[in-house]
Design a protein around this nucleic acid. Sequence first.
RNA 1: GGCUCAUUGGUCAAGUGGUUAAGACUCCGCCCUCUCACGGCGGCAUCAGGGGUUCGAAUCCCCUAUGAGUCACCA
Length: 481
Amino acid sequence: MTKVRTRFAPSPTGYMHIGNLRTALYAYLLTKSMGGDFILRIEDTDQERYVEGATDVIYNTLRETGLLWDEGPDIGGNYGPYVQSDRKGLYKEYAEKLVEQGKAYYCFCDKERLEKVRHDCEVQKIPPKYDRHCLNLSKEEIQAKIDAGEPYVIRQNMPQSGTTSFEDAVFGTITVENITLDDQVLLKSDGMPTYNFANVVDDHLMAITHVIRGNEYLSSTPKYNLLYEAFGWEIPQYIHCSPVMRDHTHKLSKRDGDASYEDFIKKGYLKEAVLNYIALLGWSPQGEQEKFTLEQLVEAFSVTGISKSPAIFDEAKLAWLNGEYLRELTPEQFYEKALPFIEQAVKNPALDKMKISALLQKRTEKLSDIPEQIDFFDKVPQYSNELYVHKKMKTNEENSKTSLIALKELLSNQEDWTVDGIHDSVMALVEQLGIKNGQMLYPLRVAVSGKAFTPGGGIELAEILGKEETLKRIDEAISKL
RNA sequence: GGCUCAUUGGUCAAGUGGUUAAGACUCCGCCCUCUCACGGCGGCAUCAGGGGUUCGAAUCCCCUAUGAGUCACCA
């Protein structure tokens, strides 16, 4: 049995779209689940779109997420080079082979003529198709034009009758009428192949066994099969994936500003969560497990779980999953990730950020939510005394004031400024006064934070703020009431 | 417009002729609790519509609707 080989073949746009990353993930999972190799190939045949540093984005994202490739531009392999522009010379040879067989032909039509042809089609309301104007040029005519230095392309000569079918692992058998196929350009006038040609040549030369890609290629796949057949090459297994959507009618796109892997990391999502979530978008495992490490995904993955219909990206679920990952971190690990976000809101160096971090861990879904939760540590925000009115706590402005006055008295004599120490003293006071816990603790929270809900309870906040600051805040609160 | 494809709750989805149509997220309620969150328990809500085939259809067939992809010297 031949070794399974899949490839991820992005074009360097400087940006890792979440849908692209999912395709890479599936390709990786498929091949690793069958003990195969994962190949990275850069498709840069459109030099007009070349972006400096774009390949680094691809390398970094793949490396960060653990989708390590076995062969690629940077590490080489037995089937290189792995950058299409470095393979330029080789496509022409194959295109010419096709011309010899009559499966392709030279075309000298310029842009103006092609536009006119297209325009005419539109007017007649028929699907735009090249009119095969150059199909029957004689050898002499062709040679004369080439000698004269006329630019040319090589087009695929599509059969004009019959049908072409192919098998897709997720969509099943798809059949099209050959007559609907356009004579697509294989080799551009600059000598570069089109994607349509390069992907076939390269997939064959690189011994790719399974082609995983977006389903925007579904409708051109018959053309690729015709190419494979013309060359007598073995056709790979096709696995086309439906797109990741923003909503029912729109794909998740760059313009939405949150379609790239980078965007999500910036927002404070963990790479494990992003990867785990996108794995589940359009694929479902056998059992009921939803949380997977990359290794577990490799174990669980199967193409039969890939769904045909487009999936809408649901950030709420990503956030939930991210929260799950955050909660299972050790306090130290969480602290390390949370610190930059804590520091956005807390500048006071006297405050113990590790303690703040501990309060946040169970209350954070994405790290970027942190600053807003703790914006009261440096300075109590403006708040209305109505905050003291809490039905369930049975508090109002009056009894809150009474509680705070008693609390002030108590805490100014408090020696042991630890959560336990404060807790014991306060509880003793509560008992002595014969009130509910909440009637003492809720006013404390408000006085100390200016908020109705906070990460941690009033006592925990007081401990972090320190005795002096706590008393100061209680004082201010009393005078406000 | 032609061609290709898709359609199970708000979202991701299981399901392949006989099920009370899983599960997760969201939302709501209760419990826990000094708030919020976590955790626990419970709840709302789905087979796009219409025809067939069949004893029986979410599952098979046809039509309709809606949506997507494609129709470049982009990938």
